[in-house]
Design a protein around this nucleic acid. Structure first.
Lengths: 142, 142
DNA sequence: TATGAAACCTGTAGTAACTACAGGATCAAG
DNA sequence: CTTGATCCTGTAGTTACTACAGGTTTCATA
């Protein structure tokens, strides 16, 4: 009458939290070690026991990571949330700074893509030795 | 009548190689340690002494890194060059694989950019607590 | 030739964000 | 009570460098 890991609010094991969130076990322990996740209660034998709030928080962290926020950015975000008195402006500042980062990365990669395409275009991929790509990769060959 | 570091083909110091290539000293030593750069000759006192071929090779490595090739990809490329019997096709294969990687990264970042923009749009950045960005970052808040 | 600062040497440890063990304890089912 | 799955801690590995500490060499100047 219940999922194996959640028997009447007794809390769930790290394994089942891992399965539900898609975050692997070592990573959950890692987040605890670096202080993103709070220390959970333990069973008599010392096994970690998680509740709903842990799952929510871990979900938040994972979502942020998917969106490319760094651990330190997430720490700031969580600090605001934990403090409880954050404003929209504070949160938006973090998000906007991050958006700028992402846009810069896109621009860099696009430049890179063009160069790689150009470099590759010079080469027909044949059996001939002395590939023009190699030459192109030597800066100002003289 | 000569640059301080290059006295009559005697080879240049790691410091001047660093300056000419823009690659910092620790990194040059690191490339040597991992086998990308060959061990250079040494002075009587044990200081590294580089020639033109080292500068060319280091230039190649740096250029590849700028283009986002990983150290292992560069190792493959250099292996082909060092072997001397590479074909255009082999080189192009490495470059094309890398170009695919870059394009995948661009696509991912663009998706991310859209999401961050959407998330940010919900927020007016005001003084109000309870920012909608935070809510958006909790996955399926129920 | 002596001196002293700048550059160099080796080896180790730190960075980001995890992942992967080793070696042992606990849990849940039968 | 046994057994196999899961969990525990602690340490080391990953990528591509960077940053020391503590000591030696070089080289321009006095």
């Amino acid at each position: 009458m219940s999922t194996p890991a959640t028997i009447r609010g007794a809390g769930s094991s790290i394994g089942s939290l891992s399965q539900r969130t898609g975050c692997n076990i070592e990573t959950i322990r890692y987040y605890e070690r670096i202080g993103l996740m709070p220390e959970p209660r333990r069973t008599a034998g010392g096994h970690r026991s998680y509740g709903k709030s842990h799952e929510r928080r871990l979900g938040f962290i994972r979502r942020c990571r998917e969106l490319g926020f760094s651990i330190e950015e997430i720490r700031v975000l969580l600090g605001l949330v934990d403090g409880g008195d954050y404003t929209c402006g504070e949160v938006k500042a973090v998000a906007d700074r991050h958006l700028d980062d992402v846009r810069r990365k896109i621009a860099d990669l696009k430049k890179l893509e063009r160069t790689l395409k150009d470099v590759g275009a010079a080469c027909d991929g044949g059996q001939v030795p002395e590939c023009p790509i190699i030459d192109a990769l030597y800066p100002n060959t003289g």
